Amino acid sequence: MGRAGKALGLILKNYGINQNQLAIAMSIDRSSISRWIAETREPSAESVLEIRDALETLDTAAAAEFTRLYWGKDELSE
């Protein structure tokens, strides 16, 4: 458990994106993001895709890095 949370925490820190910005971009409560980063909850597969999409709207480099860290490649194969 925690792969998404670890990747997300690192991305937010390295790209200067705060939890509230991401929550707004995802249209969710900030507490969900906080729990993912604290690794008390793991995001669903759907939420991981939503994280990537929200990061894309905030910073394309952050989205690419999240994808690389989480999936082990630069872009998600669709």
Rank of each mutant, 00 (worst) to 15 (best):
S77D: 14
E46G: 14
N14H: 12
A4Y: 06
T60E: 07
A4R: 06
A62V: 06
R68P: 00
R30F: 08
A23N: 09
T60L: 08
G72I: 13
S27G: 10
Y70N: 00
S31N: 04
S32L: 04
D59Q: 04
R35I: 01
R35S: 03
A63T: 08
G5M: 03
N20L: 09
A38V: 10
A62G: 07
L22Q: 03
W36I: 02
G16W: 01
A38Q: 09
I51P: 04
L22H: 02
Y15D: 06
K73W: 11
L49S: 10
R68V: 05
I28S: 07
I33W: 04
R68T: 10
A63I: 12
E78D: 14
S27D: 12
E75K: 15
K73E: 15
R3D: 01
Y15M: 00
I51Y: 03
I17C: 00
A64M: 11
E75A: 15
R30V: 11
R30Q: 12
S47R: 03
R41P: 00
S32H: 05
N20I: 09
E75F: 14
L8Q: 03
G16I: 01
K6D: 08
D74I: 12
L10Y: 12
N20C: 06
Q19S: 03
S32A: 07
M26I: 09
E42V: 07
W71C: 13
T57M: 12
E56D: 14
S77M: 14
L12I: 09
I11T: 04
Q21M: 11
I17Q: 02
R35F: 00
I24H: 13
L69M: 04
K6Q: 10
K73I: 14
D29L: 07
L8G: 02
E78L: 15
M1D: 12
A38G: 05
E42Q: 10
F66W: 05
K73T: 14
S77H: 13
R41S: 13
K13A: 11
K6M: 08
L12R: 03
K6A: 13
S31R: 06
A61Q: 10
V48T: 04
A38S: 08
M1F: 14
A63E: 11
S77A: 15
A23W: 11
A23T: 02
A7S: 09
K73Q: 15
A7F: 08
S44Y: 13
E65R: 05
L49A: 08
L8D: 00
L8K: 00
L12A: 07
R41F: 07
I37M: 03
A54Y: 08
R35Y: 02
G72P: 11
A25N: 14
I33T: 03
A38F: 04
R68S: 12
A62I: 05
S77T: 14
W71D: 07
K6E: 13
I37A: 00
G5C: 03
E50C: 10
